[in-house]
Design a protein around this nucleic acid. Structure first.
Lengths: 252, 252
DNA sequence: CGACTAATTGAGTCGCTTCAATAAGCGTGG
DNA sequence: CCACGCTTATTGAAGCGACTCAATTAGTCG
């Protein structure tokens, strides 16, 4: 079930002139960071014809866990969470996507997790079947996709160490560090970690990433503030004052 | 640092006659299940020339976390664990490989986790550089590899739900179920879950998978036995007596 | 059969959760 | 602009589940 009651976006996907015509890709903000970067202009425009740019308001779910995986996408702007739940409703966030990231489950007709916008976002959506077909015919795209999926797997496994073996204070420190590194990676500049940034997540979502409760997250953040390691000037703003000590607290 | 003081295996990898010659692949036990299944005979033998079959005794580590990732491999027989640790030595097992599985980190020169034999095993090892080159030239291999990496990622994310949100009893139930399903999947038969099987892991290793202690694992297994859901006829043997109730206890 | 290792079981402690109350942001409308 | 109400976050107190430490039992292998 996919609901996208969004006014048709300003994208010439349905214009008469087909093929090797600019489908908007030339001006795409994440072209150089997304998997599309692997493609030559002609192939990119061919793929672009299958894509539709849609706005996804905060809180809207693009894909539901267990439902058939009808689409894949590149995130252009915003942030998305990937999450799974137990039968009785406990939730775990298993990944967060940032601009340039690829989301969805190619080559499989069930999605193992839900995908939901954390903040107002924009995606370039592809019907999965069309994407699968295109990928199969374009090894350079599959090669790039393989690289990003391997990176995601590494990240997921690092997170398993956090979830299985780290204390609450180590988890929160690790979370702040990872976020500062991911947000600092704009794709263009040589990826320096940020010392000051805004959280795209509220406390409950942080808890759902770390396998903790909202109260424990709050207490640990307060502890880091008291220790002079962080400043928290606003609800969603983090300022890292003492990165070395933060790293020491992350435990790996 | 790779130590492989193993008597040279009965593999004609170094025989004079090169190319499109049987390199042992024709009789490989996991040929149809491994990523090699994607290759035609000629390409397979070409790749086979880079491979060396080695025996890995229980407990030996093939790849070390953080060291440069010099090799990749197909597991032919046995079982391997993939693990990471915190600086102070707490360990988390982030994956278990069974025959036919691919291990190692292609396209990256650091391995994010260690790979260690859980039981006496046999692998078909490839120098990573040679494998990367070969993969790059054989899209059908990369396509297959992409499929297996996507499956691994799904599995890792399911495990994140377990580690982040499940209770000890749910974790142990989930573990027994997953193992019964993985071991039942011989690649040939239509993959029926096993009701009776031997654990390739001791209690400490189960604890390292589940993010628990050895005592908690033991207590939860005992509880399942008392409830009549499992029988534990030997240290490493599990017999599932009441699968529906086991599934109910797994919590998803 | 005896020595050693692995697993089980018990008792007490600790860390995170739960439940509850307070405080701080934040948007809205007077 | 500030008061108001609502949401989100913080802080406190009590409870509970998993851990730690310790003792016992069951396998395993020479």
């Amino acid at each position: 079930m996919l609901v996208l009651d969004i006014p048709s976006p300003p994208l010439p996907a349905a214009v008469p002139t087909p093929r090797s015509q600019d489908s908007g890709c030339e001006s795409c903000a994440v072209r150089s960071r997304s998997i599309c970067a692997s493609l030559q202009a002609e192939a990119r425009n061919l793929l672009g014809r299958d894509g539709r740019i849609v706005s996804v308001p905060r809180g809207r779910t693009l894909v539901w866990e267990g439902e058939d995986s009808a689409l894949v996408a590149n995130l252009i702007e915003g942030a998305l969470k990937l999450s799974t739940s137990t039968t009785d409703g406990r939730e775990q966030i298993v990944g967060v996507a940032y601009p340039g990231d690829f989301i969805g489950r190619p080559f499989n007709d069930r999605s193992p997790h839900s995908v939901t916008a954390l903040v107002d976002s924009r995606c370039c959506l592809f019907p999965r079947a069309a994407f699968d077909r295109f990928a199969h015919d374009h090894p350079e795209l599959e090669h790039r996709l393989l690289g990003t999926v391997l990176d995601e797997l590494d990240r997921a496994r690092r997170w398993m160490l956090l979830l299985g073996r780290k204390s609450a204070s180590e988890r929160v420190a690790s979370f702040v560090l990872e976020l500062s590194e991911r947000l600092g990676d704009n794709g263009c500049a040589p990826a320096a970690p940020l010392d000051r940034f805004d959280l795209p997540l509220d406390r409950q979502q942080i808890a759902d990433i770390l396998g903790l409760t909202i109260e424990t997250v709050s207490r640990q953040l307060s502890a880091l503030r008291s220790a002079g390691i962080l400043d928290l000037p606003a609800r969603r703003t983090v300022h890292i004052l003492d990165r070395p000590r933060l790293i020491a607290r992350a435990g790996n």
